[in-house]
Structure formats: C-alpha cells, structure tokens
Nucleic acid binder design. Structure first.
Length: 420
DNA sequence: TCTGGGGTCCTAGGACCC
DNA sequence: TCTGGGGTCCTAGGACCC
C-alpha cells in the first residue's frame, strides 16, 4: 500500500525520564528511586489529592498516576511527598544539556518536562558505531549525571521512535528499543487495545471497534477512504501511523496554530454563583498577567463553569482590538455568565482560556476611551506584574481574595511545593 | 475507568464579503 | 435582482497529549 522507499529514513531517539517527579524526589532525599516506595501527590494535606507520580516499587502495590491519596496503603515504608516543580525543571534542563552534547539544538525537541526527541542522523557516527550504541551511552550518562533512569525508543521517524518507547522500551530491562519500517508487521500490527497507540484514545477506540477494527493491523488494512469519510484528516493520519509512517521532521519546527493561555480548576467544595465570581477573577488576573509577560493581546476569551451535577455553561467572546486588561475581560465574562449560567446552582469547575493573540504593540486606544484613565490602568497593571514576578503571585492580591471563596493561597502553596 | 491542570488541533455551521 | 462560488471569521463542541 505504501512505499517505504520514499519515506524518511532517519535516526530518531525518543527519551523518557522514568517516573520523573517521583525519581527526582527520591534523589533529593538521598533515596534510591529503584527500591524506594514514594508518591508525589498534588497536596499531602488533602486526602482527595491525586498521585502525580509514583516509583515503580510503589506501582507494584497498585498505586498509579491518578490514584487518590486515600488509596495509598498506610505503611511506614511509603513516602508521600509534595511536588517541587522548580527542582524538576532544573533536573529536566540538566538532562537536556547532556542530550545536547550529541545533537544540534535544531535537531532537538522537548516534548514535555520528562520527554524529548532528538534526531541523531547527522551526528551519531561522531560518538558511536550505531544509533543504538549512542542511545546506550546517553542512557548511562543521564544516570551518572542525575541518578534518573530513562527509557529510549529509536526509530526511522518520530512516530516509530515514540511507539518503540511507549510499547517496548518502557517495559523492558535495559530500557532501549529500536523499531524500523521492516518491524511494522511484527511490532505495530499486534498492538491492542487501540488506545495503547499514540493518537488514539478511548472514544475513538470505541468507534473503530464498531467498524471491526481491534488491533493496529486491522487499522493498517482498512480502506483509508472510509477512514477519511468517517473521521476526516485524522482518519488518514491513523492509517499512515498504523503503517509506521510519519513525515514530521524536528528541524521543520511547527509553530502552534492556535496558542493559548489557560487556567482551570476543580473546586474543593461546592461554590455558589457569587463565590464563582471570586475564583473567576483570580483566574483572569493570572492569565492576563501571563499574557502581558508574553507581550500579547488576546482577541478571544473562552470560559466555562460546571455545576456539581456535571452541567457545563460555556461561551467564547471575541473583541476585534484585543485586550490584556483583566477588568475588561472580567466584565465580558461575567456579563455572559450572568445570562447563560444557572444563578442558583452549586459549582465545582471553573476555567478561562485566552487565544487568538496579536502583538501588544498593536494596541489601539478607541476614541471613546478616556486616555488618561487607560494610561493609569496600564501603569498599575505593569507595577502589579513586576511585583508578582519579583515576589510571587501572592505579593499583590485583590481584597476579594481575602474572602473564603478565594483559592489563591492554596494554589500558591501547591506551586511552591510546600505549605506556608 | 481515568486525577488535575496545561496545552493543541479539527470540524461543522452560520455570517459576511467579494 | 437573482444565483452561485469561494474565502474568511466566529462560535460551539469534540478529541488527544503529557
């Protein structure tokens, strides 16, 4: 069906730092991540808190990412730790430095805090006889430098390297797996359930199962015209991916089509509509702050509130000129919510997202605005921004945030990684 | 069967313009 | 005035990733 001859034949490594948060937290305490039972949870003080990461030894006891704190067995040999994001970031960049010894920055792509791709097609021969040997060296060096264990997938394109990592390397002794096009029938096609495959989740799996597709081989042999008809261009991607094909190249950096700045929260208790106002304002303050640091104006603000019964009220609003002003955003958002949301319901979720950015140099003051007032407000926002950058998010806050509804202090505790 | 919070992308339908 | 086609923007909603 497809001609691998014309497909990319590169040497891509996909590296995953194993149980990253949990491993780093072990190392900080002088413990061995391989033998210690440790979980990093969102907040050790709240029993409903979720497990963000767990060491392999703890996973063996049934604790996994997403478990709740109260599900962790009450044992003396189990450590339960708050996250230290700053340290995780430091470790992540230290490891990135190690990786960058073996490839050019333009051939490197940080996929997330604990995962990255590197194209070593042009560089591996400088350091090793084969990509595999280079992977082994990198694996060893990451461990020597940081004590963090990794897993590495090697492939002829980014997708194959990622699949080699997820399906094989992560689970095997030694932690390195290599997949080439000729391995596709043997390695890819038996994969089942479908959601084990990158890019297919539970919902799509159900729809594919309805069509008699249960493993990746079924998908690879399905008529792509039908996939296109029923799933659009994603259907075509699935067909290519099921055959191990992916044309993305790290060097050809793709710019995000629709970047966004978002803040969302699940509340710790039921909130009345009036209390929602407080949290919403705090969230908008934060996203507007981040927006200004990025020197952008947002033209679109999306927002939603969800009740404890699962009903969601959402809307998006676009203003032609764009804004970075939290008061203006709040006026818009609350104006809509007053009309679309149920004022007597009890709420559990709130989210705000800014999109559709333009540079803030494009700011235009309308003829109807009071110039003096605008400048005053801008000066105030700038001062507040600077204080927040210098002294943290709690340095300046609204009087509203002194009410019981505020979630600010709680969140700051989470970010800092310890309770004040 | 899927935490919580931060992201990105796709599609369909309506409005509007040329 | 009517009809049709093409393009772009906006909104709602869905899906997936770490």
């Amino acid at each position: 069906m497809y001609d691998y001859y014309i497909c990319p034949h590169r040497h891509i490594l996909c590296v995953d730092l194993k149980s990253f948060f949990a491993s780093v937290s072990c190392i900080l305490k002088g413990l061995d991540p391989k033998t210690t039972k440790l979980a990093v949870v969102g907040d050790t003080k709240s029993i409903g808190s979720v497990v963000l990461a767990a060491t392999p030894e703890l996973k063996k006891l049934g604790v996994r990412t997403g478990s709740r704190l109260f599900e962790i067995p009450n044992r003396r040999d189990i450590y339960i730790i708050n996250p230290s994001m700053k340290t995780y970031l430091d470790y992540s960049s230290k490891i990135t430095e190690v990786a960058l010894q073996y490839t050019a920055p333009e051939d490197f792509h940080q996929y997330s805090i604990d995962e990255f791709f590197m194209d070593v097609t042009n560089s591996f021969h400088l350091f090793a006889a084969s990509p595999y040997e280079l992977a082994a060296r990198l694996h060893r060096e990451i461990h020597e430098e940081t004590k963090v264990d990794s897993a590495i997938g090697i492939g002829e394109n980014m997708l194959l390297s990622k699949l080699a990592l997820d399906i094989e390397a992560k689970k095997m002794e030694g932690g390195i797996a290599e997949w080439r096009y000729h391995d596709v029938p043997e390695k890819l096609w038996p994969i089942t359930p479908l959601k084990a495959f990158w890019g297919i989740n539970r919902r799509s799996e159900v729809k594919l199962n309805e069509r008699g597709i249960f493993n990746i081989g079924d998908l690879a042999h399905y008529n792509p015209a039908y996939l296109k008809r029923d799933f659009g261009i994603i259907g075509i991607d699935w067909h290519l991916h099921a055959n191990g094909i992916d044309f993305s190249v790290i060097r050809e950096k793709h710019e995000a089509h629709s970047p966004s700045i978002a803040k969302s929260q699940i509340l710790m208790r039921d909130y009345t509509f009036e209390e929602v106002y407080v949290v919403l304002f705090e969230q908008i303050d934060e996203v507007a702050h981040r927006l200004r640091l990025a020197h952008r104006l947002a033209r679109t603000v999306q927002f939603s509130v969800g009740t404890k019964d699962g009903e969601v009220f959402r809307k998006q609003h676009t203003i032609k000129e764009g804004t970075n002003n939290e008061n203006e955003m709040m006026k818009i958002v609350w104006g809509h919510l007053r009309h679309i949301a149920e004022p007597h319901a009890l709420y559990r979720t709130i989210s705000v997202s800014l999109t559709n950015f333009i540079p803030d140099s494009a700011r235009q003051v309308s003829l109807f605005e009071d110039m003096e007032k605008v400048l005053k407000e801008e000066a105030l926002m700038k001062t507040v921004d600077e204080l927040k950058v210098k002294y943290g998010q709690l340095a300046v806050m609204r009087a509203l945030s002194r009410t019981d509804a505020s979630t600010l202090k709680l969140r700051e505790g989470l970010i800092a990684g310890h309770k004040r």
